[in-house]
Design a protein around this nucleic acid. Structure first.
Length: 604
RNA sequence: GCGGGCGUAGCUCAGCUGGUUAGAGCGCCGCCCUGUCACGGCGGAGGUCGCGAGUUCGAGUCUCGUCGCUCGCGCCA
């Protein structure tokens, strides 16, 4: 007989009755009745009830073994008597009568409960992640993650993509997020950077003649965390292909996404259309470049109404005179909402730093609410016309400079939708995945603080119109072959048709204020490669953690990562990051120059 | 870097307007219990109320500072 097990903890059935079997696992629960004692033995597959029968010499020993200890038990499978069968357990018809028991790994008293969700906080869960991972929900999430990744691989391979591995120690790049740096011992004073994405490598693979690349790629970015952004590192389904247009990339990735969400989405439905929304339209209608299309509210521009001479709302007029805009959101059928509905939204807006959230409620044929008196009837009619509002609807207003107004209107659109009671006509749709492509991103944007022109997204994107556009269009009007894919308000990925022409590359970087020397220094490898025959190519890189997070219906991305860091990019279990020894630093030619406050807290 | 929330037993939390010995559930320890499956019963241990200052006759409770966690903004494919 095998030393540890003949079956796993989910296998035993009536077929096994009278067999002598051996199973191993963790003690999930113990129920001690004095004479007879039950153990639910757990492994990753399931649970099996084991019995220490009355009069067994093992009783005293077993009573002392704590929950979460690992044991191996040997004994005979027996049918459970009549009404003691448990229909809620797959193995509930039978039980194992223990003849022998061996403790493989004793457990001390555990800091939180594994067998049930006792609400333990994240800090302690991360410190004892291996205990947390034993819990049913985490096992399920991680299994889902594994299944998703397997399926992604198969779907990509099925479309003829080859899987690659690219370097982890590589060069820093000036665009994008902050890099993680790794000092080089062999090259004093020099540093590797961890890749923010294998961007250049995958493009170089295209230039190397591989047609279709993909990788389950680790990416490293030294940026602050969010609920949907794991600090430090995350994984992408990174892909790139040659001789393609934007539509070709969409046609490859849409069936992958649709397939994954159908396969693992349970009873949630996927909208068949992956709607394409130009960036500018998305910012106007949804106030965001990652709109949640389950929210039916739309934003409209009503600047002209508030600019009318007969409208006397000074707060908005002043902003309009300084070039600002007024955006409006129609909230349907809120005539019967209590005053608190509007007050809560107003205090939400104030909490966001706005003066408030003005509105007009159209009720009984006239406009009501705090600012209605500044808007004469004719102008109110105009507002109704533009926003589509009818009697019983309210229209909320946001006034600011264009970008700020768009962003705040986007936030207000979400806040208003969230404020609707359950079952409201405009409440967020449930049980759906609504995808969209955001396309036609601007190539450049103006940094509001410095007034300098910058790449608005990826500097390697091909400008629409190529060299001609760069030379002859207003830079701020140039669009890029740059796209994002969004699901339920979460940005899953962005991608682009890349710039594969060195002269366009040089021109674009020049326009973004990069010296030719910088381009040489930082992207010399790829720029050179472009001069030796580069195919047109493009790709995309959907975030795997986010996909799994949506599929698992988890509000926090750390719930689908085995060993995540906390919000401050610390691994509480492994105690990373940690200090380096004097020897290590010396070897790397590094001297520390720490801020005073840090030194103090370190000492304390 | 900024703003909101939280910090009380191993875990999750209660503790009203400041007032005697800070509570509950789970867990833990002991005893009892022959069929449970969140087993049950009786008893018990366990607290720097994050830390530091202040106000007060008196602070878990009020004030200020500080640290930690978390959510959001900034930042960021």
């Amino acid at each position: 007989m095998h030393p540890y097990r003949t079956h796993n903890c989910a296998e035993l059935r009536q077929d096994h009755i009278d067999d002598t079997v051996k199973i191993s696992g963790w003690i999930h629960r113990k129920r001690d009745h004095g004479g007879v004692l039950f153990i639910d033995l757990r492994d990753t597959h399931g649970l099996t009830q084991c019995v220490v029968d009355e009069g067994s010499p093992l009783l005293a020993e077993v009573e002392k073994i704590r929950p979460e200890s690992v044991i191996t038990v040997t004994g005979k499978v027996r049918l459970r008597p009549g009404e003691t069968q448990n229909a809620t357990m797959p193995t509930g018809e039978v039980e194992l009568y223990i003849d022998e028991i061996e403790v493989q790994g004793a457990a001390e008293v555990i800091p939180f409960q594994v067998a049930e969700d006792d609400g333990a906080g994240e800090e302690i869960r991360l410190k004892y992640r291996y205990l947390d991972l034993r819990r049913e929900k985490m096992q399920k999430n991680i299994r889902l993650r594994n299944d998703v990744i397997t399926s992604l691989r198969e779907r990509m391979k099925g479309q003829g993509f080859q899987e690659f591995q690219t370097p982890i120690l590589t060069a820093s790049s000036p665009e994008g997020a902050r890099d993680f740096l790794v000092p080089s011992r062999l090259n004093p004073g020099k540093f590797y950077a961890l890749p923010q994405a294998p961007q250049q490598f995958k493009q170089l693979l295209m230039m190397s003649g591989f047609d279709k690349y993909f990788q389950i790629a680790p990416c490293f970015r030294d940026e602050d965390s969010r609920a949907d952004r794991s600090p430090g590192e995350f994984y992408q389904l990174d892909m790139e292909m040659s001789f393609v247009t934007q539509d070709d990339v969409f046609n490859v990735i849409e069936p992958v996404m649709r397939g994954i969400f159908e396969e693992f989405g349970g009873d949630r439905t996927i909208h068949s259309d992956f709607v394409k929304i130009p960036y500018l339209e998305s910012m106007m209608k949804y106030g965001s470049d990652k709109p949640d299309l389950r929210n039916p509210l739309e934003i409209v521009d009503v600047t002209e109404v508030f600019a009318r001479d007969d409208v006397e709302f000074k707060a908005f007029k002043g902003t309009i005179e300084k070039g600002g805009v007024v955006r409006a959101i129609r909230a349907p059928n809120v005539g019967d909402q209590p005053r608190s509905f509007f007050d809560k939204l107003n205090s939400w807006a104030q909490g966001e730093g706005a003066p408030g959230l003005g509105y007009v409620l159209f009720k009984d044929g006239e406009g009501a609410g705090p600012i209605a008196k500044f808007i004469p009837a004719a102008a109110q009619e105009e507002l109704k016309k533009i926003s589509g509002a009818e009697d019983g609807d309210a229209v909320f207003f946001i006034c600011n400079q264009e970008l700020a107004a768009a962003k705040f209107a986007g936030a207000a659109r979400e806040a208003i939708c969230n404020a609707f009671p359950e079952g409201h006509v405009a409440a967020r749709e449930q049980g759906e995945f609504k995808f969209c492509w955001i396309v036609d991103f601007p190539m450049f944007e103006m940094d509001e603080e410095t007034g300098k022109m910058e790449f608005s997204h990826n500097p390697f994107s091909m400008p629409q119109g190529g060299m001609d556009a760069l030379e002859n269009q207003d830079p701020l009007d140039i669009l890029a072959w740059q796209y994002d894919i969004v699901c339920n308000g979460i940005e899953l990925s962005s991608g682009a048709i890349r710039n594969h022409k060195p002269e366009i590359m040089e021109k674009a970087f020049d326009m973004a204020g990069y010296d030719k020397q910088v381009l040489e220094d930082k992207f010399g490898g790829m720029l050179n490669a472009m001069k030796f025959g580069a195919p047109p190519h493009g790709g995309i890189a959907p975030g795997i953690d986010r996909i799994v997070m949506i599929l698992a219906d988890e509000p926090n991305i750390r719930e689908v990562i085995v060993f995540p860091m906390n919000g401050n990019a610390q691994d509480l279990m492994m105690k990373a990051p940690s200090t380096a020894s004097a020897e290590q630093l010396k070897e790397l030619n590094i001297k520390l120059d720490l801020p005073k406050a840090k030194v103090k807290s370190e000492a304390a």
